[in-house]
């Protein structure tokens, strides 16, 4: 299936966001499920909607700025805006299965 240019840039942004780790869990924010939406418009403007594992976390501003810096460095991105939301609040179930394995989720705790 052919991807639109915006979708391609969106994928590259997602890949770039893997450089940003949650320092406490040690995994990147994409695999942790902290990135809710990545949108790119026709002129290369990127908008990212993300959250943090806990509201009020001291790392919040660093994670937000890190996501912005990673996105703006992607070729084809002319501007990057990152917004935070806590609706819905992040839950461990939002992680990818590989992230869960890395954090040692037992099979009984996987739901």
């Amino acid at each position: 299936m052919m991807l639109s240019p915006q979708e391609e840039v969106g994928q590259r942004i997602e890949e770039a966001l893997r450089l940003v780790i949650d320092p406490e869990l040690g995994l990147n924010i994409v695999d942790l499920g902290l990135v809710y939406v990545i949108g790119v418009n026709d002129s290369g403007g990127a908008r990212i909607l993300m959250t943090t594992t806990t509201r009020g976390c001291p790392a919040t501003s660093f994670l937000k700025d890190g996501a912005q810096q990673a996105a703006i460095a992607v070729p084809g991105v002319t501007s990057a805006e990152v917004s935070l939301t806590y609706d819905p609040a992040w839950k461990p179930e939002m992680m990818t299965s590989s992230a869960r394995v890395q954090l040692g989720f037992g099979p009984d705790n996987d739901t």
Partner: peptide, 18 residues
């Protein structure tokens, strides 16, 4: 970690707190 590596998050690979 926040003080040293927080500001460069997103620009380069960083260590974990651990």
């Amino acid at each position: 970690w926040l003080e040293c590596f927080g500001p460069v998050l997103g620009t380069t690979a960083t260590p974990r707190v651990q």
